[in-house]
Design a protein around this nucleic acid. Structure first.
Lengths: 257, 257
DNA sequence: TGTACATCAGTGAACGCGCGTTCACTGATGTAC
DNA sequence: TGTACATCAGTGAACGCGCGTTCACTGATGTAC
Protein backbone atom coordinates (compact mmCIF):
# COMPACT_ATOMS: atom_id res chain seq x y z
CA UNK A 1 0.00 0.00 0.00
CA UNK A 2 1.77 3.13 -1.19
CA UNK A 3 0.87 6.41 0.45
CA UNK A 4 -0.56 7.86 -2.75
CA UNK A 5 -3.00 5.01 -3.29
CA UNK A 6 -4.84 4.97 0.04
CA UNK A 7 -5.40 8.56 0.91
CA UNK A 8 -7.63 8.57 3.98
CA UNK A 9 -11.31 9.09 3.29
CA UNK A 10 -11.83 12.84 2.93
CA UNK A 11 -14.91 12.89 5.16
CA UNK A 12 -13.06 11.77 8.27
CA UNK A 13 -9.64 13.33 8.28
CA UNK A 14 -8.06 13.08 11.66
CA UNK A 15 -7.19 9.89 13.47
CA UNK A 16 -9.46 11.01 16.25
CA UNK A 17 -12.44 11.33 13.96
CA UNK A 18 -11.85 7.94 12.45
CA UNK A 19 -11.39 6.32 15.85
CA UNK A 20 -14.51 8.00 17.11
CA UNK A 21 -16.62 6.76 14.23
CA UNK A 22 -15.27 3.26 14.61
CA UNK A 23 -15.92 3.07 18.33
CA UNK A 24 -19.39 4.42 17.79
CA UNK A 25 -19.98 1.56 15.37
CA UNK A 26 -18.54 -0.89 17.87
CA UNK A 27 -20.87 0.36 20.57
CA UNK A 28 -23.88 -0.16 18.35
CA UNK A 29 -22.60 -3.59 17.35
CA UNK A 30 -22.13 -4.58 20.98
CA UNK A 31 -25.62 -3.29 21.76
CA UNK A 32 -27.01 -5.35 18.91
CA UNK A 33 -25.18 -8.46 20.15
CA UNK A 34 -26.41 -7.88 23.67
CA UNK A 35 -29.93 -7.39 22.34
CA UNK A 36 -29.68 -10.64 20.43
CA UNK A 37 -28.76 -12.70 23.47
CA UNK A 38 -30.51 -10.93 26.34
CA UNK A 39 -33.47 -9.04 24.94
CA UNK A 40 -34.33 -5.38 24.93
CA UNK A 41 -35.38 -4.81 28.50
CA UNK A 42 -32.08 -5.95 29.95
CA UNK A 43 -30.05 -3.82 27.56
CA UNK A 44 -27.88 -1.52 29.63
CA UNK A 45 -25.15 1.02 29.06
CA UNK A 46 -23.00 -0.79 31.60
CA UNK A 47 -23.36 -4.15 29.87
CA UNK A 48 -22.19 -2.68 26.60
CA UNK A 49 -19.25 -0.96 28.26
CA UNK A 50 -18.33 -4.27 29.86
CA UNK A 51 -18.48 -6.09 26.54
CA UNK A 52 -16.15 -3.52 24.97
CA UNK A 53 -13.77 -3.44 27.92
CA UNK A 54 -14.48 0.21 28.60
CA UNK A 55 -15.60 1.86 31.74
CA UNK A 56 -19.33 2.57 31.73
CA UNK A 57 -18.97 6.33 31.81
CA UNK A 58 -16.90 6.29 28.62
CA UNK A 59 -19.93 5.20 26.64
CA UNK A 60 -21.49 8.55 27.41
CA UNK A 61 -18.97 10.14 25.05
CA UNK A 62 -20.89 8.45 22.22
CA UNK A 63 -24.43 8.10 23.44
CA UNK A 64 -26.42 10.71 25.30
CA UNK A 65 -28.47 8.30 27.38
CA UNK A 66 -29.99 4.87 27.40
CA UNK A 67 -33.02 6.17 25.51
CA UNK A 68 -30.81 7.67 22.85
CA UNK A 69 -29.10 4.31 22.45
CA UNK A 70 -32.49 2.61 22.13
CA UNK A 71 -33.54 5.07 19.44
CA UNK A 72 -30.39 4.40 17.45
CA UNK A 73 -31.01 0.66 17.70
CA UNK A 74 -34.62 1.00 16.65
CA UNK A 75 -33.72 3.07 13.62
CA UNK A 76 -31.02 0.56 12.72
CA UNK A 77 -33.43 -2.35 13.06
CA UNK A 78 -36.08 -0.74 10.88
CA UNK A 79 -33.45 0.02 8.27
CA UNK A 80 -31.98 -3.48 8.37
CA UNK A 81 -35.42 -5.02 7.90
CA UNK A 82 -36.33 -2.52 5.21
CA UNK A 83 -33.09 -3.11 3.33
CA UNK A 84 -33.51 -6.89 3.53
CA UNK A 85 -37.00 -6.65 2.09
CA UNK A 86 -36.00 -4.18 -0.63
CA UNK A 87 -33.02 -6.25 -1.73
CA UNK A 88 -35.06 -9.39 -2.07
CA UNK A 89 -37.85 -7.61 -3.86
CA UNK A 90 -35.58 -5.91 -6.38
CA UNK A 91 -34.28 -9.26 -7.57
CA UNK A 92 -37.72 -10.24 -8.89
CA UNK A 93 -39.06 -9.55 -12.37
CA UNK A 94 -41.00 -6.25 -12.19
CA UNK A 95 -44.07 -7.82 -13.77
CA UNK A 96 -44.23 -10.74 -11.34
CA UNK A 97 -46.33 -9.00 -8.72
CA UNK A 98 -47.09 -12.13 -6.74
CA UNK A 99 -43.39 -12.98 -6.74
CA UNK A 100 -42.43 -9.51 -5.57
CA UNK A 101 -45.07 -9.62 -2.86
CA UNK A 102 -43.94 -13.06 -1.73
CA UNK A 103 -40.32 -11.88 -1.69
CA UNK A 104 -41.18 -9.08 0.71
CA UNK A 105 -43.21 -11.36 2.98
CA UNK A 106 -40.59 -14.07 3.23
CA UNK A 107 -37.84 -11.48 3.68
CA UNK A 108 -39.73 -10.08 6.65
CA UNK A 109 -40.28 -13.48 8.17
CA UNK A 110 -36.72 -14.64 7.66
CA UNK A 111 -35.21 -11.44 8.98
CA UNK A 112 -37.46 -11.72 12.02
CA UNK A 113 -36.47 -15.32 12.69
CA UNK A 114 -32.79 -14.44 12.26
CA UNK A 115 -33.02 -11.34 14.47
CA UNK A 116 -35.79 -12.11 16.94
CA UNK A 117 -34.87 -9.54 19.56
CA UNK A 118 -34.38 -6.76 17.06
CA UNK A 119 -37.76 -7.66 15.62
CA UNK A 120 -39.31 -7.62 19.08
CA UNK A 121 -37.73 -4.23 19.68
CA UNK A 122 -39.63 -2.69 16.78
CA UNK A 123 -42.79 -4.81 16.52
CA UNK A 124 -43.21 -6.10 20.07
CA UNK A 125 -44.39 -4.45 23.24
CA UNK A 126 -43.13 -0.87 23.35
CA UNK A 127 -40.37 -0.40 25.92
CA UNK A 128 -42.14 1.17 28.91
CA UNK A 129 -41.22 4.77 29.57
CA UNK A 130 -39.73 5.17 26.12
CA UNK A 131 -41.60 6.77 23.28
CA UNK A 132 -40.19 6.79 19.83
CA UNK A 133 -39.08 10.16 18.50
CA UNK A 134 -40.10 11.24 15.00
CA UNK A 135 -36.80 10.15 13.46
CA UNK A 136 -38.03 6.55 13.67
CA UNK A 137 -41.09 7.19 11.51
CA UNK A 138 -39.46 7.15 8.08
CA UNK A 139 -37.40 3.94 8.54
CA UNK A 140 -40.48 2.33 10.06
CA UNK A 141 -42.37 2.84 6.82
CA UNK A 142 -40.00 1.16 4.41
CA UNK A 143 -41.64 -2.26 4.32
CA UNK A 144 -45.17 -0.88 4.25
CA UNK A 145 -44.24 1.44 1.41
CA UNK A 146 -42.82 -1.46 -0.53
CA UNK A 147 -46.01 -3.47 -0.04
CA UNK A 148 -48.17 -0.50 -0.98
CA UNK A 149 -46.22 0.06 -4.18
CA UNK A 150 -46.66 -3.56 -5.25
CA UNK A 151 -50.39 -3.55 -4.54
CA UNK A 152 -50.87 -0.32 -6.46
CA UNK A 153 -48.74 -1.35 -9.43
CA UNK A 154 -50.55 -4.66 -9.63
CA UNK A 155 -53.91 -2.93 -9.48
CA UNK A 156 -52.99 -0.42 -12.18
CA UNK A 157 -51.11 -2.64 -14.59
CA UNK A 158 -52.90 -5.92 -14.18
CA UNK A 159 -56.35 -4.53 -14.94
CA UNK A 160 -57.80 -6.31 -11.91
CA UNK A 161 -61.29 -4.94 -12.31
CA UNK A 162 -62.27 -5.04 -8.66
CA UNK A 163 -59.17 -3.23 -7.52
CA UNK A 164 -59.66 0.34 -8.62
CA UNK A 165 -63.36 1.11 -8.84
CA UNK A 166 -64.43 -1.67 -6.54
CA UNK A 167 -66.87 -1.68 -3.67
CA UNK A 168 -67.21 1.50 -1.64
CA UNK A 169 -66.45 1.70 2.02
CA UNK A 170 -68.46 3.36 4.83
CA UNK A 171 -67.71 7.03 5.28
CA UNK A 172 -65.99 6.78 8.71
CA UNK A 173 -63.68 4.14 7.24
CA UNK A 174 -62.82 6.59 4.48
CA UNK A 175 -61.89 9.08 7.21
CA UNK A 176 -59.84 6.49 9.09
CA UNK A 177 -57.82 5.73 5.96
CA UNK A 178 -57.15 9.39 5.22
CA UNK A 179 -53.54 9.41 6.53
CA UNK A 180 -52.68 6.84 3.87
CA UNK A 181 -53.96 9.02 1.03
CA UNK A 182 -50.52 10.64 0.91
CA UNK A 183 -48.98 7.29 -0.02
CA UNK A 184 -51.47 6.12 -2.64
CA UNK A 185 -52.36 7.63 -6.01
CA UNK A 186 -55.70 9.43 -5.98
CA UNK A 187 -57.50 6.89 -8.16
CA UNK A 188 -56.89 4.00 -5.77
CA UNK A 189 -60.10 3.07 -3.98
CA UNK A 190 -60.54 3.10 -0.22
CA UNK A 191 -61.40 -0.57 -0.43
CA UNK A 192 -58.03 -1.39 -1.93
CA UNK A 193 -56.25 0.59 0.77
CA UNK A 194 -58.29 -1.24 3.38
CA UNK A 195 -57.24 -4.56 1.86
CA UNK A 196 -53.63 -3.43 1.83
CA UNK A 197 -53.66 -2.48 5.49
CA UNK A 198 -55.26 -5.79 6.40
CA UNK A 199 -52.61 -7.72 4.52
CA UNK A 200 -49.91 -5.64 6.20
CA UNK A 201 -51.29 -6.35 9.69
CA UNK A 202 -51.81 -9.98 8.73
CA UNK A 203 -48.19 -10.33 7.68
CA UNK A 204 -46.72 -8.87 10.85
CA UNK A 205 -49.38 -10.48 13.02
CA UNK A 206 -48.41 -13.87 11.65
CA UNK A 207 -44.68 -13.29 12.05
CA UNK A 208 -45.19 -11.99 15.59
CA UNK A 209 -47.38 -14.94 16.54
CA UNK A 210 -44.77 -17.38 15.24
CA UNK A 211 -41.94 -15.55 16.98
CA UNK A 212 -43.69 -14.89 20.27
CA UNK A 213 -44.75 -18.51 20.70
CA UNK A 214 -48.46 -18.21 19.98
CA UNK A 215 -48.21 -20.97 17.36
CA UNK A 216 -46.68 -23.42 19.80
CA UNK A 217 -49.71 -25.66 20.11
CA UNK A 218 -51.31 -24.56 16.86
CA UNK A 219 -49.02 -24.88 13.86
CA UNK A 220 -46.78 -27.93 13.45
CA UNK A 221 -43.05 -27.54 13.85
CA UNK A 222 -41.92 -30.36 11.62
CA UNK A 223 -39.34 -29.61 8.91
CA UNK A 224 -40.80 -27.17 6.40
CA UNK A 225 -44.21 -27.04 8.02
CA UNK A 226 -44.08 -23.46 9.26
CA UNK A 227 -42.66 -22.38 5.91
CA UNK A 228 -45.46 -24.15 4.08
CA UNK A 229 -48.08 -22.59 6.30
CA UNK A 230 -46.54 -19.17 5.79
CA UNK A 231 -46.35 -19.64 2.04
CA UNK A 232 -50.03 -20.51 2.01
CA UNK A 233 -50.75 -17.34 3.98
CA UNK A 234 -48.74 -15.34 1.45
CA UNK A 235 -50.66 -16.89 -1.40
CA UNK A 236 -53.99 -15.94 0.13
CA UNK A 237 -52.87 -12.45 1.10
CA UNK A 238 -51.89 -11.93 -2.51
CA UNK A 239 -55.39 -12.93 -3.56
CA UNK A 240 -57.05 -10.80 -0.91
CA UNK A 241 -55.12 -7.69 -1.84
CA UNK A 242 -55.88 -8.08 -5.53
CA UNK A 243 -52.33 -8.94 -6.51
CA UNK A 244 -53.40 -12.50 -7.28
CA UNK A 245 -52.82 -13.52 -10.86
CA UNK A 246 -55.57 -13.81 -13.40
CA UNK A 247 -56.01 -17.41 -14.32
CA UNK A 248 -56.80 -17.08 -18.06
CA UNK A 249 -60.04 -19.06 -18.03
CA UNK A 250 -61.25 -18.08 -14.60
CA UNK A 251 -62.76 -15.08 -12.92
CA UNK A 252 -60.26 -12.91 -11.05
CA UNK A 253 -59.11 -14.54 -7.86
CA UNK A 254 -60.18 -11.81 -5.55
CA UNK A 255 -62.82 -11.84 -2.91
CA UNK A 256 -65.80 -10.33 -4.77
CA UNK A 257 -67.69 -8.00 -2.41
CA UNK B 1 -76.82 -11.22 60.98
CA UNK B 2 -77.72 -14.13 63.23
CA UNK B 3 -75.16 -16.83 63.72
CA UNK B 4 -77.32 -19.50 62.14
CA UNK B 5 -77.88 -17.57 58.92
CA UNK B 6 -74.28 -16.89 57.92
CA UNK B 7 -72.43 -20.04 58.60
CA UNK B 8 -68.97 -19.51 57.16
CA UNK B 9 -68.43 -20.95 53.69
CA UNK B 10 -67.66 -24.61 54.21
CA UNK B 11 -64.70 -24.56 51.84
CA UNK B 12 -62.71 -22.09 53.92
CA UNK B 13 -63.47 -22.70 57.58
CA UNK B 14 -60.91 -21.02 59.74
CA UNK B 15 -60.27 -17.30 59.95
CA UNK B 16 -56.73 -17.98 58.88
CA UNK B 17 -57.80 -19.71 55.72
CA UNK B 18 -60.18 -16.94 54.82
CA UNK B 19 -57.59 -14.26 55.53
CA UNK B 20 -55.05 -16.15 53.50
CA UNK B 21 -57.32 -16.41 50.48
CA UNK B 22 -58.22 -12.75 50.70
CA UNK B 23 -54.64 -11.55 50.92
CA UNK B 24 -53.73 -13.78 48.03
CA UNK B 25 -56.45 -12.05 46.03
CA UNK B 26 -55.16 -8.68 47.16
CA UNK B 27 -51.64 -9.53 46.05
CA UNK B 28 -52.86 -10.45 42.59
CA UNK B 29 -55.00 -7.31 42.47
CA UNK B 30 -52.04 -5.16 43.43
CA UNK B 31 -49.93 -6.91 40.83
CA UNK B 32 -52.60 -6.24 38.23
CA UNK B 33 -52.76 -2.58 39.23
CA UNK B 34 -49.00 -2.29 39.08
CA UNK B 35 -49.00 -3.98 35.69
CA UNK B 36 -51.61 -1.53 34.46
CA UNK B 37 -49.58 1.52 35.37
CA UNK B 38 -45.99 0.40 34.98
CA UNK B 39 -45.91 -2.48 32.52
CA UNK B 40 -44.79 -6.06 32.90
CA UNK B 41 -41.04 -5.72 32.92
CA UNK B 42 -41.00 -3.43 35.94
CA UNK B 43 -43.33 -5.67 37.92
CA UNK B 44 -41.57 -6.62 41.12
CA UNK B 45 -42.32 -8.47 44.30
CA UNK B 46 -41.09 -5.49 46.28
CA UNK B 47 -43.36 -3.02 44.48
CA UNK B 48 -46.39 -5.15 45.27
CA UNK B 49 -45.38 -5.49 48.91
CA UNK B 50 -44.99 -1.72 49.09
CA UNK B 51 -48.42 -1.16 47.59
CA UNK B 52 -49.99 -3.45 50.17
CA UNK B 53 -48.01 -2.03 53.06
CA UNK B 54 -46.31 -5.33 53.74
CA UNK B 55 -42.68 -6.12 53.97
CA UNK B 56 -41.34 -7.67 50.77
CA UNK B 57 -40.49 -11.00 52.31
CA UNK B 58 -44.09 -11.47 53.45
CA UNK B 59 -45.22 -11.82 49.85
CA UNK B 60 -43.22 -15.02 49.67
CA UNK B 61 -45.82 -16.63 51.96
CA UNK B 62 -48.20 -16.43 48.98
CA UNK B 63 -46.06 -16.57 45.91
CA UNK B 64 -43.11 -18.87 45.33
CA UNK B 65 -41.12 -16.48 43.16
CA UNK B 66 -41.45 -13.67 40.68
CA UNK B 67 -41.94 -16.19 37.87
CA UNK B 68 -44.72 -17.87 39.77
CA UNK B 69 -46.43 -14.50 40.18
CA UNK B 70 -46.06 -13.86 36.45
CA UNK B 71 -47.63 -17.20 35.64
CA UNK B 72 -50.61 -16.46 37.86
CA UNK B 73 -51.08 -13.09 36.18
CA UNK B 74 -50.82 -14.60 32.72
CA UNK B 75 -53.42 -17.24 33.49
CA UNK B 76 -55.67 -14.58 34.99
CA UNK B 77 -55.30 -12.35 31.94
CA UNK B 78 -56.11 -15.14 29.48
CA UNK B 79 -59.14 -16.04 31.55
CA UNK B 80 -60.34 -12.44 31.83
CA UNK B 81 -60.05 -11.98 28.07
CA UNK B 82 -61.67 -15.35 27.41
CA UNK B 83 -64.53 -14.62 29.76
CA UNK B 84 -65.13 -11.19 28.24
CA UNK B 85 -65.29 -12.69 24.76
CA UNK B 86 -67.54 -15.57 25.82
CA UNK B 87 -69.96 -13.31 27.66
CA UNK B 88 -70.37 -11.00 24.71
CA UNK B 89 -70.73 -13.86 22.30
CA UNK B 90 -73.36 -15.68 24.33
CA UNK B 91 -75.66 -12.67 24.16
CA UNK B 92 -76.02 -12.98 20.40
CA UNK B 93 -78.65 -15.03 18.58
CA UNK B 94 -77.11 -18.46 17.86
CA UNK B 95 -77.97 -18.23 14.17
CA UNK B 96 -76.38 -14.83 13.66
CA UNK B 97 -72.90 -16.09 12.91
CA UNK B 98 -71.57 -12.78 11.68
CA UNK B 99 -72.92 -11.14 14.83
CA UNK B 100 -71.33 -13.73 17.07
CA UNK B 101 -68.03 -13.40 15.25
CA UNK B 102 -68.15 -9.61 15.47
CA UNK B 103 -68.97 -9.84 19.17
CA UNK B 104 -65.83 -11.87 19.82
CA UNK B 105 -63.65 -9.53 17.78
CA UNK B 106 -64.88 -6.35 19.38
CA UNK B 107 -64.72 -7.94 22.83
CA UNK B 108 -61.06 -8.75 22.24
CA UNK B 109 -60.28 -5.24 21.01
CA UNK B 110 -62.15 -3.51 23.80
CA UNK B 111 -60.65 -5.69 26.51
CA UNK B 112 -57.20 -5.01 25.07
CA UNK B 113 -57.75 -1.25 24.99
CA UNK B 114 -59.10 -1.34 28.54
CA UNK B 115 -56.25 -3.55 29.81
CA UNK B 116 -53.30 -2.71 27.60
CA UNK B 117 -50.58 -4.04 29.86
CA UNK B 118 -52.37 -7.27 30.60
CA UNK B 119 -52.86 -7.68 26.87
CA UNK B 120 -49.17 -6.99 26.27
CA UNK B 121 -48.32 -9.55 28.93
CA UNK B 122 -50.03 -12.32 26.99
CA UNK B 123 -49.78 -11.18 23.36
CA UNK B 124 -46.68 -8.99 23.40
CA UNK B 125 -43.00 -9.78 23.55
CA UNK B 126 -42.44 -12.74 25.87
CA UNK B 127 -40.84 -11.72 29.15
CA UNK B 128 -37.15 -12.63 28.70
CA UNK B 129 -35.99 -15.53 30.83
CA UNK B 130 -39.53 -16.63 31.52
CA UNK B 131 -41.17 -19.43 29.64
CA UNK B 132 -44.79 -20.18 30.14
CA UNK B 133 -45.57 -23.46 31.91
CA UNK B 134 -48.22 -25.78 30.49
CA UNK B 135 -50.92 -24.50 32.85
CA UNK B 136 -51.21 -21.43 30.63
CA UNK B 137 -52.10 -23.40 27.51
CA UNK B 138 -55.77 -24.07 28.22
CA UNK B 139 -56.74 -20.50 29.21
CA UNK B 140 -54.76 -19.25 26.20
CA UNK B 141 -57.04 -21.19 23.88
CA UNK B 142 -60.40 -19.83 24.98
CA UNK B 143 -60.77 -17.09 22.38
CA UNK B 144 -59.41 -19.20 19.55
CA UNK B 145 -61.76 -22.03 20.47
CA UNK B 146 -64.68 -19.64 20.41
CA UNK B 147 -63.70 -18.40 16.96
CA UNK B 148 -63.19 -21.90 15.69
CA UNK B 149 -66.60 -22.96 16.91
CA UNK B 150 -68.32 -20.08 15.13
CA UNK B 151 -66.50 -20.75 11.87
CA UNK B 152 -67.35 -24.43 11.97
CA UNK B 153 -70.99 -23.92 12.93
CA UNK B 154 -71.38 -21.35 10.17
CA UNK B 155 -69.78 -23.66 7.65
CA UNK B 156 -71.96 -26.62 8.65
CA UNK B 157 -75.30 -24.91 9.09
CA UNK B 158 -75.12 -22.16 6.53
CA UNK B 159 -74.38 -24.45 3.58
CA UNK B 160 -71.55 -22.20 2.44
CA UNK B 161 -70.49 -24.34 -0.49
CA UNK B 162 -66.83 -23.36 -0.53
CA UNK B 163 -66.38 -23.97 3.16
CA UNK B 164 -66.41 -27.72 3.55
CA UNK B 165 -65.25 -29.35 0.34
CA UNK B 166 -63.47 -26.29 -0.95
CA UNK B 167 -60.05 -25.95 -2.50
CA UNK B 168 -57.37 -28.34 -1.39
CA UNK B 169 -54.17 -27.24 0.26
CA UNK B 170 -50.57 -28.38 -0.43
CA UNK B 171 -49.54 -31.44 1.54
CA UNK B 172 -46.99 -29.74 3.84
CA UNK B 173 -49.69 -27.23 4.79
CA UNK B 174 -51.91 -30.15 5.70
CA UNK B 175 -49.11 -31.35 7.97
CA UNK B 176 -48.63 -27.92 9.49
CA UNK B 177 -52.32 -27.73 10.38
CA UNK B 178 -52.34 -31.17 11.98
CA UNK B 179 -52.28 -29.93 15.62
CA UNK B 180 -55.59 -28.20 14.97
CA UNK B 181 -57.29 -31.39 13.83
CA UNK B 182 -58.10 -32.11 17.48
CA UNK B 183 -60.23 -28.97 17.61
CA UNK B 184 -62.13 -29.28 14.35
CA UNK B 185 -64.60 -31.95 13.20
CA UNK B 186 -63.10 -34.37 10.71
CA UNK B 187 -65.15 -33.14 7.73
CA UNK B 188 -63.80 -29.60 7.94
CA UNK B 189 -61.38 -28.93 5.13
CA UNK B 190 -57.76 -27.88 5.61
CA UNK B 191 -58.55 -24.76 3.61
CA UNK B 192 -61.19 -23.70 6.11
CA UNK B 193 -58.80 -24.26 8.99
CA UNK B 194 -56.18 -22.23 7.16
CA UNK B 195 -58.70 -19.41 6.74
CA UNK B 196 -59.59 -19.62 10.40
CA UNK B 197 -55.98 -19.35 11.52
CA UNK B 198 -55.42 -16.40 9.23
CA UNK B 199 -58.43 -14.59 10.63
CA UNK B 200 -57.23 -15.34 14.15
CA UNK B 201 -53.76 -13.92 13.48
CA UNK B 202 -55.34 -11.02 11.62
CA UNK B 203 -57.52 -10.16 14.60
CA UNK B 204 -54.72 -10.18 17.15
CA UNK B 205 -52.27 -8.63 14.71
CA UNK B 206 -54.63 -5.72 14.21
CA UNK B 207 -55.29 -5.25 17.92
CA UNK B 208 -51.57 -5.45 18.68
CA UNK B 209 -50.70 -2.93 15.97
CA UNK B 210 -53.28 -0.49 17.29
CA UNK B 211 -52.15 -0.97 20.88
CA UNK B 212 -48.42 -0.95 20.23
CA UNK B 213 -48.53 2.27 18.23
CA UNK B 214 -47.97 0.89 14.73
CA UNK B 215 -51.10 2.67 13.51
CA UNK B 216 -49.90 6.06 14.70
CA UNK B 217 -49.19 7.50 11.28
CA UNK B 218 -51.43 5.08 9.40
CA UNK B 219 -54.99 4.98 10.70
CA UNK B 220 -56.78 8.17 11.72
CA UNK B 221 -57.49 8.81 15.37
CA UNK B 222 -60.56 11.00 15.01
CA UNK B 223 -63.68 10.03 16.98
CA UNK B 224 -64.98 6.68 15.81
CA UNK B 225 -62.37 6.24 13.09
CA UNK B 226 -60.44 3.38 14.63
CA UNK B 227 -63.72 1.68 15.50
CA UNK B 228 -64.94 2.08 11.93
CA UNK B 229 -61.70 0.71 10.52
CA UNK B 230 -61.84 -2.23 12.90
CA UNK B 231 -65.48 -2.93 12.04
CA UNK B 232 -64.54 -3.00 8.37
CA UNK B 233 -61.77 -5.48 9.18
CA UNK B 234 -64.26 -7.64 11.06
CA UNK B 235 -66.66 -7.56 8.13
CA UNK B 236 -63.96 -8.72 5.74
CA UNK B 237 -62.60 -11.38 8.08
CA UNK B 238 -66.12 -12.75 8.30
CA UNK B 239 -66.22 -12.98 4.52
CA UNK B 240 -62.76 -14.50 4.29
CA UNK B 241 -63.49 -17.19 6.83
CA UNK B 242 -66.73 -18.17 5.14
CA UNK B 243 -68.95 -16.82 7.92
CA UNK B 244 -70.14 -14.01 5.66
CA UNK B 245 -73.84 -14.11 4.94
CA UNK B 246 -75.31 -15.22 1.65
CA UNK B 247 -76.79 -12.29 -0.16
CA UNK B 248 -79.86 -13.94 -1.74
CA UNK B 249 -79.22 -12.83 -5.31
CA UNK B 250 -75.46 -12.93 -5.25
CA UNK B 251 -72.75 -15.52 -5.26
CA UNK B 252 -71.41 -16.43 -1.84
CA UNK B 253 -69.25 -13.69 -0.41
CA UNK B 254 -66.18 -15.79 -0.01
CA UNK B 255 -62.92 -15.59 -1.80
CA UNK B 256 -63.37 -18.19 -4.57
CA UNK B 257 -60.04 -19.95 -5.15
C1' DT C 1 -64.25 -24.56 79.52
C1' DG C 2 -59.07 -24.14 80.18
C1' DT C 3 -54.42 -24.99 79.27
C1' DA C 4 -50.18 -26.45 76.50
C1' DC C 5 -48.42 -26.88 72.29
C1' DA C 6 -48.12 -26.39 67.12
C1' DT C 7 -48.78 -23.72 63.20
C1' DC C 8 -47.72 -20.06 60.40
C1' DA C 9 -48.43 -14.89 58.74
C1' DG C 10 -45.76 -11.13 58.92
C1' DT C 11 -41.20 -8.55 60.55
C1' DG C 12 -36.76 -6.50 59.88
C1' DA C 13 -32.24 -6.88 58.71
C1' DA C 14 -29.13 -8.47 55.62
C1' DC C 15 -26.85 -10.80 51.32
C1' DG C 16 -25.05 -9.49 46.84
C1' DC C 17 -26.35 -7.82 42.74
C1' DG C 18 -26.99 -4.43 38.68
C1' DC C 19 -28.48 -0.09 37.11
C1' DG C 20 -28.02 5.20 35.03
C1' DT C 21 -25.59 9.08 35.55
C1' DT C 22 -22.15 12.65 37.33
C1' DC C 23 -17.67 14.50 38.01
C1' DA C 24 -12.93 15.75 38.65
C1' DC C 25 -8.96 13.73 36.63
C1' DT C 26 -5.09 12.09 33.10
C1' DG C 27 -2.86 11.85 29.13
C1' DA C 28 -2.86 11.32 24.28
C1' DT C 29 -4.06 13.71 19.94
C1' DG C 30 -4.61 17.86 17.16
C1' DT C 31 -3.70 22.86 16.01
C1' DA C 32 -1.75 27.49 15.68
C1' DC C 33 2.10 30.06 15.63
C1' DT D 1 10.45 21.75 12.12
C1' DG D 2 9.47 22.87 17.18
C1' DT D 3 6.92 24.52 20.92
C1' DA D 4 2.66 26.00 23.65
C1' DC D 5 -1.88 25.45 24.12
C1' DA D 6 -6.61 23.42 23.35
C1' DT D 7 -9.36 19.54 22.68
C1' DC D 8 -11.39 15.54 24.16
C1' DA D 9 -11.49 10.09 24.79
C1' DG D 10 -11.27 7.34 28.49
C1' DT D 11 -10.62 6.59 33.89
C1' DG D 12 -12.13 5.52 38.47
C1' DA D 13 -14.75 6.56 42.22
C1' DA D 14 -18.95 7.76 43.85
C1' DC D 15 -24.15 9.09 44.17
C1' DG D 16 -28.52 6.83 45.21
C1' DC D 17 -31.46 3.68 43.60
C1' DG D 18 -34.19 -0.87 43.11
C1' DC D 19 -34.13 -5.70 42.77
C1' DG D 20 -34.95 -11.11 44.39
C1' DT D 21 -34.34 -13.90 47.99
C1' DT D 22 -32.93 -15.79 52.71
C1' DC D 23 -33.30 -16.19 57.57
C1' DA D 24 -33.92 -16.00 62.48
C1' DC D 25 -37.51 -13.84 64.99
C1' DT D 26 -42.34 -12.53 67.18
C1' DG D 27 -46.75 -13.04 68.22
C1' DA D 28 -51.33 -14.10 66.92
C1' DT D 29 -54.41 -17.96 65.55
C1' DG D 30 -55.78 -22.80 65.70
C1' DT D 31 -55.91 -27.52 67.85
C1' DA D 32 -55.71 -31.44 71.03
C1' DC D 33 -56.35 -32.94 75.33
Amino acid sequence: MSETENTPAPVLRTARERARAEIHREILAAARRHLATEGASSLSVRAIARELGMVSSAVYRYVASRDDLLTQLIVEAYNALGAAAETREEAIDRCDFVGRFAAVCTAVREWALANPHEYALIYGTPVPGYDAPTETVAPAGRVSLLLARIVVEAALEQRVPAAIGEDAVPLPVHAALQPLRAVFPADVSDALIQRGVMVWTGLFGTVSFELFGQFRTVIGEGPGEREAFFAECVRRWALQSGIGVFAPDRSPEVEPV
